[in-house]
Simulated scan of single mutants.
Amino acid sequence: MSVPATTSSTNAASTTSTSTSSTSESNTLDYNSFLQLLVAQLQNQDPTDPTDPTQFISQLASFSSVEQLVNANSRLDTMLTQAAISQGASLIGKNVTSADGTVSGKIVSIEINSSGSVATLANGSTIELASGVVIS
């Protein structure tokens, strides 16, 4: 009898690790997934001790607020990227000198990445466009 219990425990552990790995792959929860969880929670609640409905409304309101903040943040990121592209385009053809004065030249291209903008010069060197860089 101890063998089936061990097998059952092993199956439960592998199921847990599978759900954990899928959760770590995608840490996002969209609105529909949240509603599915909410409905499942309602369907599986203990009938002798039902959950307070105000808790569900509170959870839904909190999720809605977070979703709105994520959407606003996404729009802000898009606006910042567009501004960086616009600014970068206006810098092509201008001369740039690094903050320490060791690298200078004419900008031939701009790369925009998560850490900022990087200018590629005509001589092949690159300069991160940060504070202290002189553009003329």
Rank of each mutant, 00 (worst) to 15 (best):
L35V: 15
A61L: 12
A83K: 09
A61T: 15
T51G: 09
L42K: 10
S98P: 01
V134K: 08
S8I: 11
L42Y: 10
I110G: 06
S24L: 12
T102Y: 03
R75N: 07
S98V: 10
F56S: 03
G88D: 02
L60V: 07
I112R: 00
D77A: 11
N71Y: 05
Q68M: 09
Q55I: 09
T15A: 15
S33W: 08
D52M: 10
T7N: 14
S64Y: 09
T18H: 04
D49Q: 13
T48L: 15
V108G: 04
V39I: 15
N71R: 14
Q55V: 12
S104Q: 11
S26T: 12
T23F: 07
G101E: 02
V39S: 09
A89Q: 05
T16P: 00
Q55S: 10
T28C: 06
I135F: 11
I107A: 02
T6I: 05
D49R: 05
T28E: 06
A89S: 08
Q45S: 12
A5H: 04
T126F: 01
D77F: 03
L38Q: 10
V66Y: 02
T18C: 05
S14K: 05
T20R: 12
L60F: 11
A61I: 06
R75T: 08
S58F: 04
S109H: 01
V108H: 02
S33I: 13
T7V: 09
V39A: 15
D77Q: 15
S24G: 07
T10G: 05
S21V: 15
I110F: 01
D49I: 08
S125Q: 12
D30G: 13
A13Q: 11
S90F: 04
V103P: 00
S33N: 07
T10Y: 06
L91S: 01
T28Q: 06
V3K: 11
L129S: 01
V39H: 07
N44P: 02
L129R: 01
S17C: 06
S115N: 14
V133T: 08
L76A: 10
L37G: 15
E111H: 02
F63V: 06
T28G: 01
L129I: 15
P4C: 11
G93E: 01
T51V: 13
S24F: 11
Q82A: 14
T51I: 15
S26I: 11
S9C: 06
D100L: 10
S33T: 14
E67Y: 02
L80W: 05
L80Y: 01
T10E: 04
T126M: 02
S24K: 08
S109F: 11
E67L: 05
S26N: 15
F34V: 11
L29H: 00
A130I: 14
A5L: 11
A99F: 02
S33K: 15
V133D: 00
Y31P: 00
S64N: 07
E128T: 10
N71H: 09
S24R: 15
N123E: 00
A99P: 00
A40M: 10
K94I: 03
V108F: 07
A72E: 06
V103R: 10
K106Y: 00
V108N: 11
